[in-house]
């Protein structure tokens, strides 16, 4: 660790492999959506290539890092990369939070005849009987009758789980900094377990929504915003938990030093980000 040189790899084969994998996956998915029979096979093939790329590229990075090829300055580049990547994710979630805000505070009231927005005339000409309220599946009652998701059952439990996992993650980090391997590994095991537990409970919640509450992705704007926000978040929890599992594996192999553990930090940042998004969801989707 800490040579003075800025490491510039001479060639890179994983990027092109990953690009091809991603492109085949998406083209396959598009074919699936169009109902074409080659879709599923393409999609699976692309995904396999993509996963191989992820495994290969990250292994390469880990090996290089452990053999001390990255100077402090390279580490700073990686940290900046991760920070700005998380910023882009923040903006992605902002779109869906913004959508929720706009529909609840502007377009649904307009549809109900309030204010002077564009939906007012829709109210007057198409659905004069529609009354603005939340939750709603709109004047067309798209998706039929449904029961909105409660707050204090599973969602509250999940909030506690995710917050606890944030604490255990930080506890593991302290272990790493104090060269306390035992604390590092225990902390990570707890974080990963809590993460997957969260996903499991979320799956139960979805199951209940679909089978007992009549609440689906197709339940008008309420169902759309509810499932897209919580769904994208759940996906991020899955990814975060997988990243943390890899970090756990590497910690167990004896990687990471107090002065050099970018992968751990990046995973932890990502995890805290996912945590904060959940708090936003809990307040704006479940509580309000």
């Amino acid at each position: 660790m800490s040579t003075n040189a800025y490491y510039i790899p001479h060639k890179a084969t994983w990027p092109i492999i990953g690009t091809v994998g991603l492109m085949i996956t998406l083209a396959g998915f598009a074919n699936v959506l169009n109902g074409s029979s080659i879709g599923p096979a393409m999609m699976i093939m692309g995904l396999v290539v993509f996963i191989i790329m992820l495994a290969g590229w990250f292994t390469l990075q880990a090996v290089e890092s452990e053999s001390g090829m990255y100077s402090t300055q390279v580490g700073i580049s990686y940290r900046m990369g991760m920070m700005w990547f998380i910023f882009s994710e923040v903006m992605f979630f902002a779109v869906f939070f913004g959508t929720l805000w706009y529909t609840r505070n502007l377009s649904v009231p307009w549809l109900g005849g309030f204010g002077d927005g564009p939906g007012r005339s829709t109210h007057e000409t198409l659905w004069p009987a529609f009354e603005a309220m939340w939750p709603t599946n709109g004047p067309g009652e798209i998706g039929g009758e449904f029961e909105p998701m409660g707050t204090w059952g599973l969602p509250f439990l999940n909030t506690l789980i995710l917050l606890t996992s944030g604490v255990t993650c930080t506890w593991a980090h302290h272990g790493l900094l104090a060269k306390n391997r035992d604390q590092l590994i225990k902390g990570l095991i707890a974080t990963v377990t809590l993460g997957f537990l969260f996903v499991g409970l979320q799956a139960m919640e979805y199951h209940e929504a679909y089978t007992e509450m009549g609440l689906t992705l197709g339940s008008g704007i309420y169902g759309s915003t509810f499932f897209m926000l919580t769904g994208f978040h759940g996906l991020h929890v899955c990814v975060g938990a997988i990243i943390l599992s890899v970090v756990l594996f590497r910690s167990w192999k004896g990687h990471f030093k107090p002065e050099n553990h970018f992968a751990f930090e990046a995973a932890a940042w990502y995890w805290h980000f996912v945590d904060v998004v959940w708090l936003g969801l809990f307040v704006f989707v479940y509580m309000m």
Binding site: G119, L126, T136, G140
Partner: peptide
């Protein structure tokens, strides 16, 4: 089946 941009479903 989402209704983000469909007024009948409460979208816009």
């Amino acid at each position: 089946d989402t209704s983000f941009f469909n007024a009948a479903g409460g979208g816009d």
